[in-house]
């Protein structure tokens, strides 16, 4: 088969909703795009453990402590599933982690913002996980089989995250004045960064079609962002709080909410490493990995020793 034939057969599968599996022929660019996207997704889960892990020791009740720990642990699991999916494309987890730690690979910029009060645990769950879920639900139908399967598993677990986030805020919204202020303040700080999670406007992307054509992605940034805003603008009414956007209002013609301009300069600066916590997050990941090196080496050495002993016995 010529390259052209292979490409045609590949696209034919995609068009017919047949999943691409690790051993199937795929264009090099498809492999690379998937590898980059899945590994970045995995990195985002792992780095995302840090801002929430920050409040485990200070969770204000034993119940909240257990919930928060279970949630951060889920994120470790999600990172693990995603690394495994990415590994089917021929790169080891260790290599991906190295790329994260060196600054070569990226993760979602949202996790470079600090968690300053307990209300941030609610806002992160509701807004950040809420934004992520829209993306993840779409990704359950992505064309690469291992990625789609990982996403199905993740989505099953993820819905608890957003619900607990909203419920955390709901309790605060019914609490003392200080708690209500805390709640509003967290929403104010997390609203715009969560809108940025969907990436730049469609009109500013130069090469928009390939990921859609390959069905790695199935909705554009702007579509997903609009879905998110429409959803949150309604939900916030239940909290009796406000979103920090004076331009936010229902547009009867579009049947969508209009909203104000996102600060793209901030977005690019955080991507480039100038966010409030970029250095701190990477330093924490590097430290954990470096300090774990002797542990991983010891476990391997022990397993080798035991294997040899068993072989000697058998011989």
């Amino acid at each position: 088969m010529t390259l052209h034939d292979l490409e045609k057969a590949f696209q034919h599968k995609i068009d017919n909703e047949i999943k691409i599996e690790p051993k199937d022929w795929m264009p090099e660019a498809y492999r690379k795009t998937n590898l980059r996207q899945i590994s970045q997704h995995a990195h985002s889960e792992i780095v995302g453990m840090l801002p929430e892990g920050n409040w485990i020791s200070r969770a204000p009740s034993l119940k909240r402590k257990a919930i928060l720990i279970a949630k951060v642990q889920d994120e470790a699991g999600h990172g693990l599933y995603l690394y495994s999916a990415a590994e089917t494309l021929g790169t080891s987890r260790e290599q991906m982690i190295d790329d994260l730690h060196s600054g070569k690979a990226k993760y979602s910029s949202i996790f470079n913002y600090p968690t300053l009060t307990w209300a941030d645990m609610g806002a992160v769950g509701w807004l950040v996980d809420g934004a992520a879920i829209l993306n993840q639900v779409m990704l359950c139908r992505t064309s690469y089989g291992p990625y789609a399967r990982a996403m199905v598993r993740i989505c099953k677990e993820e819905s608890f995250h957003q619900r607990q986030g909203f419920e955390t805020l709901l309790v605060l919204s019914k609490g003392t004045k200080e708690q209500r202020d805390m709640c509003q303040d967290a929403i104010n700080r997390w609203w715009w960064p969560s809108l940025m999670m969907f990436g730049p406007k469609d009109s500013e992307s130069t090469n928009s079609d390939q990921s859609m054509k390959w069905k790695i992605k199935r909705k554009t940034n702007d579509e997903l962002r609009q879905n998110f805003i429409d959803m949150i603008a309604e939900q916030i009414k239940l909290l009796g709080m406000t979103l920090p956007d004076p331009d936010l209002k229902w547009n009867e013609e579009r049947k969508h909410y209009d909203f104000g301009e996102i600060n793209w300069e901030e977005f690019w600066n955080v991507v480039k490493g100038n966010g409030p916590c970029n250095k701190q997050r990477l330093a924490a990941r590097n430290k954990a990995h470096d300090e774990g090196a002797w542990v991983r080496a010891a476990a391997l050495a022990y397993s080798e020793k035991r294997k040899n002993r068993l072989n000697n016995k058998a011989a």
Partner: peptide, 28 residues
């Protein structure tokens, strides 16, 4: 709980966190 997000490898991060949850459950 201080290990959560700082373990030597993901699998063991998850393992010790399971123990943490058991302990907090017992305490409760």
């Amino acid at each position: 709980g201080e290990w959560c997000a700082h373990g030597p490898i993901l699998e063991q991060d998850i393992a010790i966190t399971n123990i943490t949850l058991d302990l907090i459950g017992q305490a409760r």
